[in-house]
Simulated scan of single mutants.
Amino acid sequence: MNPEPTRLLRDAFGCFMTGVTVVTTIDETGAPRGFTANSFSSVSLDPPLLLISISNRSANLSAYTSGRGFAVNVLSEGQKAISNVFARPSEDRFTSVDWQAGPYGSPVIAGGSAWFDCSLERAIEAGDHTILIGRVEDFDASTAPGLGYCRGAYVTPAAAALSAEHGPRVVLAAIVEHEGRVLLLDDGAGGVKLPEMRVGQGGARGAFDRLIAETGTDATPGLVYAIYDDTERGLQFIVHLCPAATDAHKAGAFVALTEAAMTDTTDPAQQVMLRRFAAEYRQGNYGQYVGSHVAGEIRPFAKG
């Protein structure tokens, strides 16, 4: 299979903000089950139907596909911790959560923006996920603002309003590579860093063009290698792999990724990223990192 459409879809979907939900059910033993999902959508008003999707690799798949129904809990902006609990493997995700059985029987989490208790209308296999269509049997909503998710980070209405007021805080960075060597610049503090450029009114493309122009290289934008939030500085970084046809440059130097060179990289997140790139370059396979400057996940894709 050509990996390019898959990569493009993944990157495109990561650019949109989605609501964060926890989908719950009761398994055949009577135990509560749940997972964090942002694939929640309305299907029909008459009858009232909605859908979510669950990975076919989920250990709880059978509980949802053969159970009586499920509940969609729309989390509020203060429930990031609950989202994280249900997004990670755990023996019992419900021990630290205030919940009760909904009118139709599935667990309803307290303090959310809304909940929908549904009977299972249909389960449809679709690629590597199964779509669950539920008929809404009962629901409730509160005035609590909802929790969103965009580009690997949580978004709240307050944060979104602040971002809109003060402009984007997105930084493009580039791993400009030629024959295994990477362009590194003086960071002004005794170390080195990747070329980077703050996104302004010209948008991401304008920022990237300025970045390449300042380095004086013939690099071209390639795979999105990392998307992460630096929560300490309030910045979001989008890092591209940028192959260069030659080693021409007017700033910095192309450096072999030795241990000494990577140790000189003063930004800890960039240092970890360059160590990963050095290993993946040798293997010929790359992954995309999504998360924060301290923790996240790597999603592999084939070298394009």
Results as ranks from 00 to 15, higher is better:
Thr220Val: 15
Ala101Phe: 08
Ile52Cys: 06
Pro89Asn: 08
Leu45Ala: 09
Ala12Asn: 14
Cys150Gly: 13
Asp11Asn: 07
Asn84His: 13
Tyr64Thr: 01
Tyr281Ala: 08
Glu125Phe: 04
Leu75Tyr: 11
Ala251Val: 04
Ile82Met: 15
Ile238Ala: 09
Asp209Glu: 15
Leu194Asn: 01
Gly102Asn: 05
Ala295Phe: 10
Pro32Gln: 01
Gln201Arg: 09
Asp46Lys: 13
Ala189Val: 15
Pro195Met: 03
Met273Lys: 03
Gly180His: 01
Ala59Ser: 10
Lys193Pro: 10
Glu232Asn: 03
His249Asp: 04
Ile133Tyr: 02
Ile212Ser: 08
Gly34Arg: 03
Leu274Asp: 00
Ala87Asp: 10
Thr24Trp: 04
Leu241Lys: 04
Val20Cys: 10
Tyr228Gly: 07
Asp247Gly: 07
Tyr149Ile: 03
Leu120Met: 09
Tyr225Phe: 02
Met17Ile: 09
Thr25Ile: 10
Ser58Val: 00
Thr258Lys: 07
Arg88Gln: 06
Ile238Asp: 03
His249Ser: 07
Thr95Cys: 13
Met17Pro: 15
Gln270Arg: 04
Val155Met: 02
Gly78Gln: 15
Phe277Pro: 00
Leu223Glu: 08
Phe208Val: 12
Cys118Lys: 02
Phe277Asn: 04
Asp264Pro: 06
Ala141Leu: 11
Gly152Tyr: 00
Arg122Cys: 04
Thr18Phe: 15
Gly252Glu: 02
Leu75Val: 15
Ala37Gly: 05
Gln283Pro: 05
Gly69Asp: 08
Asp218Ala: 05
Val199Gly: 14
Asp46Arg: 13
Leu120Ile: 11
Ile175Phe: 00
Arg205Glu: 15
Pro300Trp: 05
Arg210Gln: 07
Leu223Phe: 06
Arg93Cys: 09
Gly105Val: 09
Glu4Lys: 01
Ile227Ala: 10
Tyr286Val: 01
Glu214Ile: 13
Ala158Thr: 03
Asp46Glu: 13
Arg10Leu: 13
Ala260Trp: 10
Ile124Gln: 06
Arg169Glu: 07
Ala153Ser: 01
Ala159Ser: 07
Val290Leu: 07
Ser41Gln: 12
Gly252Ala: 01
Ala141Gln: 11
Arg93Ser: 13
Asn285Thr: 07
Asp229Ile: 06
Ala81Asn: 11
Ala260Ser: 11
Phe208Ala: 14
Asp128Pro: 01
Thr6Glu: 05
Thr24Tyr: 02
Asp92Ser: 08
Arg198Ile: 07
Arg181Leu: 03
Ile298Gly: 11
Leu223Gly: 12
Thr36Tyr: 14
Leu162Arg: 13
Gly190His: 00
Ser163Asp: 05
Tyr104Arg: 08
Arg205Thr: 15
Asp27Trp: 01
Val290Pro: 05
Lys193Asn: 14
Val290Lys: 02
Ala253Gln: 11
Ala173Tyr: 02
Asp128Ala: 05
Ala302Lys: 14
Ala189Thr: 15
Ile54Arg: 07
Ala110Asn: 12
Arg135Met: 12
Arg233Asp: 05
Gln270Val: 00
Gly304Glu: 09
Ser39Thr: 12
Val290Thr: 05
Ala164Asp: 03
Asp209Tyr: 11
Ile238Tyr: 10
Gly291Phe: 12
Tyr228Ser: 14
Lys80Leu: 05
Thr263Ile: 06
Gly30His: 07
Ala253Trp: 08
Ala71Asp: 02
Tyr225Gln: 11
Ser119Glu: 13
